[in-house]
Design a protein around this nucleic acid. Structure first.
Lengths: 290, 290
DNA sequence: AACGTAACATGCGGAAACGCGTGCATATGC
DNA sequence: GCATATGCACGCGTTTCCGCATGTTACGTT
């Protein structure tokens, strides 16, 4: 009654993906191998783990139990890997960073450039996504986030306090200036689907003209003059064809943080990155407030 | 940066055994394989794990870290195996039982006999030892113990309440009877190295003649007439050549329990064994008290 | 109805992992 | 001081495991 730990891991991944092929991808082996490992696991445990169906493997109750225990094992493995990463002082090898796309293109690019020049031995991988990656699972080593807090069980440093304001293309701004009482069109983000509350009393008439789920698209629409956009100060300033308009006076906006898992935080590579990042933020902090 | 779980397990076992050969035994592979797995683990983790010394592998700090996380993984694996065992209703396959040697030879043998006749498909493995095996680690499925409680986090049933008393060989008993005031020689157990406190007032003079660390040897000495022994009632009664003597009146003694891990407890095989065990205990309970 | 897709099953050849035997170093015992 | 035991390193032959190519089945589309 001895069961190979790798087979338990394989069972877990098949339960998670519901297909041999999916599990095989994550394991970086052929799905045939996954099939054989499942068979071996069933034999060692003396329990049927999956019903073989045309559209995939359906886990039995026993497989769910195996998967839940394997998940605990995986958590321990991740803990180990984080610990080893955190103790690693070498300034070489891979470093994975994640940040919102717009923050990278409009602000972080120089940091990446300087970091790569300073530490050419470190291969920096950047995951530019608005998704919140799971640093506990090491989906990334370090994240730069726009958020009021660093998040549960993560360590963080506040890099920048920032404000938001309203931006539009110059022609639209001229029109508004010419007649402040005319109806002002807004382009708003799905997350905050209304006209901002604190608009200036000088501009009494507003309506939502478009709602977008993507900030890049909103920027394009604003550049085309389709309306006024509320966005972080730094982003409006960094975007060609947009200018500040006093329709919405500057107001608080979630801060920019660099966050990481406490286990990984002390790593030499992460320290090195934070050093360059922080010095860059100090230099540029003026761009983020009025 | 992908590490095979079986390699982590192997590192843990080498840390635990300090030698390749020891780990290999437990893994049931050749020690050459262990050596190769260690090397592979060091390569995947990018860390030295052991100093190769003449008398074994000495773990580095990194190996201790690996081992401690692998231990968490092992705990999860054991949890899984216990759960599967506990859900198993088949009345076939292996069942491992542990009990003190003397309890088996003097009382439990008929239970084993009846169980084997009733369930010939179940291969019963009996670990006759005074050591407290770790049921959490599945060193045994079920234990019969002489103890005041079932023990931490284990489930248990009290099988029998019992008393102890003093026994000696018939000639010695005659001599004591002839002169109750003469000096009485005791053979005592290392765990309780003095003459019992509650000896009868009719026999005022005692001394410890021998101390033993093994009950079987004590019985032999008592049979040879070397002294009086305090032992559980059932044991004295079941031993040829010993008889009850009133030097020490019957007094409380730790109860006999059957204990198991709660995860494993519901298993069909365990239920079947307990059923036979309990009915046997009910029949024989008179042997255990005065 | 024919076709395409997305699953898994199966058979085969090659690569990787394994076990065994041997050799070397160090400690232990007579 | 020599024999023995224990523990690891290394090389070789074997077994096992794996990836690839192909076959099969179910489902959906045209």
């Amino acid at each position: 009654m001895n069961i190979a730990w790798d087979d338990l891991r394989t069972v877990m991944l098949v339960v998670r993906h519901t297909t041999l092929a999916g599990a095989a991808d994550e394991l970086d082996v052929n799905y045939t191998t996954v099939s054989r490992r499942i068979r071996r696991a069933e034999k060692s445990l003396g329990v049927m783990l999956f019903e073989r169906l045309a559209d995939g493997y359906r886990p039995t109750d026993a497989a769910q139990v195996v998967a839940s225990h394997a998940k605990e094992m995986e958590a321990a493995e991740l803990g180990l890997r984080r610990h080893i990463l955190g103790q690693d002082t070498h300034l070489s090898g891979a470093l994975t960073l994640t940040a919102p796309q717009l923050l990278i293109s409009s602000f972080l690019a120089p940091v990446l450039d300087e970091f790569d020049r300073t530490h050419p031995q470190i291969e920096l991988r950047v995951l530019a996504t608005n998704d919140i990656l799971d640093l506990t699972r090491l989906e990334a080593d370090l994240a730069i986030r726009i958020s009021p807090t660093p998040g549960d069980s993560l360590k963080g440093l506040r890099l920048l306090r920032q404000e938001s304001a309203s931006f539009a293309n110059p022609e639209l701004i001229e029109r508004i200036k010419a007649d402040p009482t005319a109806l002002i069109d807004w382009i708003v983000y799905d997350g905050y689907p209304n006209v901002p509350k604190d608009v200036s009393a000088d501009f009494p008439n507003h309506r939502v003209r478009f709602r977008f789920d993507d900030m890049v698209a909103m920027i394009g629409a604003a550049q085309a003059g389709l309306g006024v956009v509320r966005m972080p100060m730094f982003l409006g300033r960094a975007t060609d064809g947009l200018e500040l308009t006093p329709v919405l006076p500057p107001q608080p906006y979630p801060d920019i943080w660099v966050v990481g898992h406490p286990d990984v935080w002390p790593s030499g590579k992460l320290q090195a990155f934070r050093k360059i990042l922080i010095s860059h933020c100090k230099k540029k902090s003026g761009n983020f407030v009025s």
